[in-house]
């Protein structure tokens, strides 16, 4: 009796549901692609998933405080470009890493300041900064890709392996563990949930709401920058991207991961574990679509449908 009860509550949790989906997608994938279970394909797939998955951590933080960051994809691209420009200047790898991560933090902080001190809606601010960042990137490159003679140490960041596992995957896992500790084991994490749940009550509980908000947007910029750095250092070149891998696609993927993972866009609800599973599921699905040799536009279409379904699902659940 009790086990049934337990199974029921377990089934009701969306994490369980997500895991189930993930297992199903994993199991049916080999039907369409015999080489699915080869280690080469698997590590490649996980690497592809790692970029949006890392960005999703930052997105989750902003969504948890009731905001959103629509500029993450653009920050990612701007960071990639900056990294390659520094490569062209033959800057040491350490300097490149520090500069681009600082750039991400700075851009995120800009969003945070405009939202916090300008008292503006997050979506309009980050939409605005997105256009500015995209515009600047376009201005610098005139729409062309650039490449440089990257050092091995730079290329090894995103291109290297630890054992059989690609570095980006390791970094993603480490970041998720850090994210988990941050959200569940630190005061800052509790403050994030509190601010998202009720700003006024958070302020009345002695929480520095402005500081929390600024930190969250800065972190969102940082996570996007890490993803951007990993992409740039994998190939040693900057390619203006479009479609699912482009800026807008990245934002949508991150939002999809977070919302599919059970976070509420009105704030205060969502888990890092859910975001991880959401990112994983979205990645596996796309992989499947690629196997099916599907037109990339249909993939985009499906991404849109998934997001729409996820937000509808999340909204209807939160109404209860």
């Amino acid at each position: 009796m009790e086990t049934i009860q337990k199974a029921r509550t377990l089934l009701k949790q969306e994490e369980t549901l997500l895991l189930l989906f993930i297992v199903i997608v994993t199991l049916i994938s080999p039907i369409f692609s015999p080489e699915f279970f080869t280690s080469y394909n698997f590590s490649n797939l996980l690497r592809q998933i790692s970029y949006p998955a890392i960005v999703s951590i930052g997105m989750l933080l902003t969504v948890l405080i009731g905001g959103i960051d629509l500029s993450v994809g653009s920050v990612m691209q701007a960071v990639s470009l900056t990294a390659i420009m520094l490569v062209q200047l033959q800057a040491p790898t350490g300097v490149i890493v520090i500069v681009v991560l600082a750039l991400g933090l700075f851009l995120g902080l800009m969003n945070g300041m405009l939202i916090t001190f300008g008292k503006l809606q997050p979506f309009i601010v980050t939409l605005g900064t997105k256009v500015i960042i995209d515009g600047t990137t376009l201005f610098m490159t005139k729409g062309k890709g650039i490449s440089g003679d990257a050092s091995d140490s730079f290329l090894s960041i995103g291109g290297g392996y630890m054992g059989a596992i690609p570095n980006p995957v390791i970094i993603m896992l480490v970041l998720y563990i850090i994210g988990f500790i941050l959200l569940n084991k630190t005061i800052f994490g509790r403050q994030i949930y509190s601010v998202g749940s009720n700003r006024v009550a958070a302020y009345n509980s002695g929480i520095n709401v402005k500081k929390v908000q600024l930190s969250v947007y800065a972190l969102s910029g940082l996570f996007a920058a890490i993803a951007g750095l990993l992409i740039a250092s994998r190939t040693g070149a900057y390619q203006p991207m479009s479609g699912n891998s482009g800026a807008t696609g990245m934002e949508l993927s991150a939002i999809a991961a977070v919302v599919v993972g059970g976070a509420s866009l009105s704030g205060g609800k969502g888990t890092i574990w859910g975001a991880f599973l959401g990112a994983l599921l979205a990645g596996l699905l796309f992989n499947l679509l690629v196997f099916l040799n599907m037109n990339p536009y249909i993939q985009q279409f499906i991404l849109g449908i998934i997001i729409l379904a996820a937000v509808i699902f999340s909204a209807s659940k939160n109404r209860k």
Binding site: K185, I187, S197, N198, S205, G206, K269
Partner: peptide, 29 residues
């Protein structure tokens, strides 16, 4: 409801939010 409670958070979090420092070991709650 509007000024004090975090309605969707647990009873525990609602009570401990102002005294979290007390429950820290090595910086973690």
């Amino acid at each position: 409801k509007t000024q004090g409670l975090f309605l969707n958070l647990s009873v525990r979090t609602n009570m401990s939010i102002t005294s979290l420092r007390k429950f820290r070991t090595f910086g973690l709650i």
